[in-house]
Structures are given as C-alpha cells and as structure tokens.
Nucleic acid binder design. Sequence first.
DNA 1: ATTGATAATGAGAGTCATTATCAATAAGCA
DNA 2: TGCTTATTGATAATGACTCTCATTATCAAT
Lengths: 151, 151
Amino acid sequence: MTNKVDRDKKALEYFKGLLQQKKMRLTKQREVIVRLFLEKEGHLCAEELYLALRKQYPRLGEATVYRTVKLLKAAELASEVNFTGKRRRFEHAFGHPHHDHLICLGCGKTEEFVNQSIEKIQERVVRQYGFAPTRHRLEIFGYCRDCRTTE
Amino acid sequence: MTNKVDRDKKALEYFKGLLQQKKMRLTKQREVIVRLFLEKEGHLCAEELYLALRKQYPRLGEATVYRTVKLLKAAELASEVNFTGKRRRFEHAFGHPHHDHLICLGCGKTEEFVNQSIEKIQERVVRQYGFAPTRHRLEIFGYCRDCRTTE
DNA sequence: ATTGATAATGAGAGTCATTATCAATAAGCA
DNA sequence: TGCTTATTGATAATGACTCTCATTATCAAT
C-alpha cells in the first residue's frame, strides 16, 4: 500500500522495456490499459477493462484489450486465474509474489494466502516424481466467514 | 485394478438410483456413455466420448454426450479437471478418493498424488480464515522425467 | 518536415466448445 | 392402447475470445 504507486510505475517501466526489446511500442491504448490494470488490485478480465475504459476512450477496441492483457501475461506483469471456467481473469503479478487462493462460492470473494510448509512439501513431492515444476496453483473453494452463516 | 469391474458396476447402479430419484431415465444412450466413461481411466472430454461411440452408435448426438457428462458431474461420478483452459475434461470420481495433479507441459501426461501433510495444513489454513471448504485443487505444472531431458 | 518501413489499431468476421431450442421419438404407467 | 412426460438428435445460438485486414500511428532516416 505504501509503495504501490512506485511499484506500479516500475511495472510500467519494465513493460515498456520488454516491448522495446521486441521492437514493439507502448502505444496510448496499451498504456491506459496497463495503467488501469495496475491500479486495480482485483481479478480483472479483459471485458471489465474494456468497459471501464470505453467511457473515456470510446474508440478503444475490445480486441486491443484482449491483445494487451495477453502481452501483460507474457511479460509476467499479470498472472491468469480462472476459477469459474468462464472468463479469464488476471491479477497483478509484478512485485506480487506467488500465493494461493481461497475462493468463496457464496459471494465470489477471494482471499490470498501463502504457506511455506505447503510449498516445501510440494518440492518434496515433485522430487519424488522426477518432475521439474514451473508453476502451480492451489485453490480452495468453499464459503467465507460471512457466507457460511447467512446462506 | 483388481475390482475395477465391480466398482464400475456399483457406479452405474448408483447413477441409476440417482436418476430414478429424480424421475429421470437411464436410457440406452446414457448407459453406453456412462459405461465408456467408467471403463476409460484417463481425463476424457465430451467430444472424445462422442467420437469413440459414434462408430458403434452412429445416431448418437453430440449434445446427448454433453448432457450426460453434466449429469455425471452432478452425480459426482465424474469430477471436472481443466488444465488447459480449453476443453472440459472429466475423470472417474466414484470410488476414486481426492488427489492432486502433476501436469507435464511437454507431453501432457498427468500424474496423481496425495499428500496427507498438505491436506492437513490446508485444514489449518482454512480454519485461520474462518473458511468452510468444500473442495480444492492443487495442480503442479512442469516437465516430467522424460520431457525434462529430451526437450 | 517528408518519406518509407513497420507496428498497432478498430471493426467486424470467424472459431471453438458448449448450451438452448424444438419437433420427433421413446418410456413408463393408467 | 392411449396419455403423459422425459429424452433425443439436429441444428441454431451463445459466449469468449481470436483472427483478418484495411486504415492509422509511430519511428528512423533522410
């Protein structure tokens, strides 16, 4: 929270750098999409970004938003989460270390957590199987404190 | 392996019972779909079942297969796995206790594992958050023994 | 500033997996 | 056997992207 602004600025700079390496450009469209994505902390999908930006930038195309979130993922500024099997959602990954999720089936709210013991044990498991891991996801579905009582 | 035939038979009986409760029928189509699904042990999608059955039952409709796998999931004979974000795949769940997955990004092979410590720690985590869990999934992506060396 | 080469955009068409619709058919049972 | 209800198969429709392509924007070198 204290240095969110800084982190977001760095993230944008980093993105710009990656684009330049590939002779790609940080266009106005890309910039506003990325800025909005970084600003919001939730799990956003391309459509939400599109709808939010359309007011101020009526000529922005939806395809551009899809293209840009794909770039963000490739640049590892965003990581994809897909709890529902419907829309692809993305969360801020730059300066946000790995974490797992608790997902409430009542209200849809998600909670992040990390548990070092689980991470450690996973390393043991993959070693047993001769497996070289690149990433993992642990998602626990259920009902949060509020929803378990009221529903 | 030893009692797979028995288990599959029980699964089918169980499914039949659930259908009857809801005044639904175990039609010929449903039966052959379910039998094939139970027989195969992998992660199958509706289309694969459809294509496999089409030879012997050319009049079978694809929609019926989609409808039936949905029923299987509702009956908890099948559990959905979706590693790729593309097709929905289903695995045999009747008499198959919970497990997690190692998924090879090279060859697509999956390995199942269970680790009681991880399960235990998860219980602690959800308790901390006042969360009532219904299910979870832990998926580790990476490269299997064969693929890590050859690719 | 102008040009030329290249990258990116927006609008709309296309794709893919799945779901809905609906007339025809099949089952259960009175 | 007739009547009611469930199910089916064929096909249209949907949702969530993804591609295409003519147009526009950007950069680098005149």
